[in-house]
Structures are given as structure tokens and as C-alpha cells.
Design a protein around this nucleic acid. Sequence first.
DNA 1: GTTCCTGCAAAAGCTTTGCAGAAGA
DNA 2: TCTTCTGCAAAGCTTTTGCAGGAAC
Lengths: 137, 137
Amino acid sequence: MKESIKEISKLLSEKDIRPSHQRIKILEYLMDNRIHPTVDMIYNELHEEIPTLSKTTVYNTLNLFDEVDLVTTLSIDDNEARYDIVTENHGHFICKECSEIYDFPIDMNSLFGNQLNDFNIQEKHVYFNGICPRCSK
Amino acid sequence: MKESIKEISKLLSEKDIRPSHQRIKILEYLMDNRIHPTVDMIYNELHEEIPTLSKTTVYNTLNLFDEVDLVTTLSIDDNEARYDIVTENHGHFICKECSEIYDFPIDMNSLFGNQLNDFNIQEKHVYFNGICPRCSK
DNA sequence: GTTCCTGCAAAAGCTTTGCAGAAGA
DNA sequence: TCTTCTGCAAAGCTTTTGCAGGAAC
């Protein structure tokens, strides 16, 4: 589902974020590439299009998006953060060999944290790791 | 359940790991302090007892323990790795405020990864985040 | 004009690597 | 003796911070 620049701008404005060119492009990238990208992947891809883009801006922007819940930061890779814009219920499988991340459906609502009655639960994450089919061969 | 030095040595030997003083102490610490410690916590605590201990050794040892499945490395904290020696089914709650980690019971066996039939699943992790009761006040 | 945003450079923090000396089999 | 282990120092990476110039309102 390709979103127009106008729609993306609106999305940002609704969150009280000024829709700068960089921010629009980063959000657009996240919406078009649901691959749980790293900062590096985002930077490398957009750097071609926006030669002046800096990694600092990518970091700033992603932290901002995280604060207003436009993205979820995944701490499932040992080395670097991954960013996910999909909000539907799903778990992640990360391959120990190639670090590729695969989504799989799982019903988070059926996960109850017994003994967590007094906790304010904001996010639920499920992740598996192991070897993916491509690396198994 | 306090383990004796002899028992810990045996545990290491069974994994073909030479039971050096440092390794025994680190494993003992992990067994006595089930608080998902960071490398720093382990180092600071044991440094008092073993003044010559270096952080490199703590890193080396934990990586070694991870390889032979004596510990599980948790990638649930943004900044640094956490180490868990408990193998029973449980999920983790990490507080966004104080980074404290709480265990809670959850049946991992009931978590199926649909569409992951060709995947070799080695570990299943469930983690929630939010605000813990102590920080809510 | 004033506030916010961007991006360079530098710093900070966690983790790994190289290597020499020490310890153990 | 020969292999393995330890620990210092340095390097490598990801991420954050300080700050000056630029853009937007």
C-alpha cells in the first residue's frame, strides 16, 4: 500500500511533527520496505536520493518516531536496533546465521502476563531465533 | 539453591570447559543472582573478590557459556546484553524507566510459530515493556 | 526574528581483537 | 613442553551529544 507524500505529511502533522523532506522520506521508506531495517539500511538507501542526508538525522528521526509510536524499536538483534512500522500482531524470527528477520502471525492478546497486575504494559514482543530455511541448506 | 564449587566445576567439565577460578566464580554468580545481570554488574561484583579480574574475561566467559547453552543472552535492553541462567519457561518484563527486569511465568510451548515449518527454532523469547510498579508511583 | 531542523565532528558506551605473559595439563 | 586462559591496550561499532548554519513559520 503505497502512500502519497500528502498522506505521509498528514500522518506526521497529526503527531505534531513538522513534515520535513527528510522525515517524509524516512517514513515513506519504512512504509514501503517492511523489512525491519537498521539505521544503516535506511541511510544507505536514502542517501542516494538525498545526498546531503546524515546518519544523525536518521537517528534523530527514528527516535522521534518511536516517541510518538509511529515505529516500534526492536531489540532483538545483538548488534543494532531494528525498526518496525507494522502494528498488527506478529512475532519475529531472527536467523542466527544471516540476521534476516521474518514475521509470523501470533495473537499477542492471548499472552497474559500473570503476576504483572500492577505493571503498566506498553508493548508485547515475541521473538524466536534459530536458523532460517535458506541458511539450513 | 546454592551450588558448591565442586558441583559448578563438574557442570563446566561436562561442557568441556576447563573450570578456572574465574569461570567458576562467574557461573556461581549467575546461579546465585538471578537478576539478568549485565557484564558490568558481574564485573563490579566479582572485581572485589578477584581484583585482577578483567572485563575481557567476563566477556570471553559469557560468550563461551552462551555457545554451550549454559546461559541465554537476552537482547531486550537497548544498551547492553543481559544474561539469564534460568531455563524454565518464563517471559521478561523490562521497565522503560529503570531498566529493571522482572520474570513472569508463561508457557512457551503453547507459542507456535505458524508459517515457520521449515525454520529451525532454537529459542523462544517473550518480552514486555512498560513501567514497573515502583516507577509508577 | 525566532524557533525548529539538519548534519558535521567529536564523544560516549558496549563489545571484540591482538598479543604477551601466566597458568595448567 | 605445549596448549589454554587471562588481562591489558587498542580498535571497532552503534548511538548520542554539541554546536553552527540553514530552513521554516
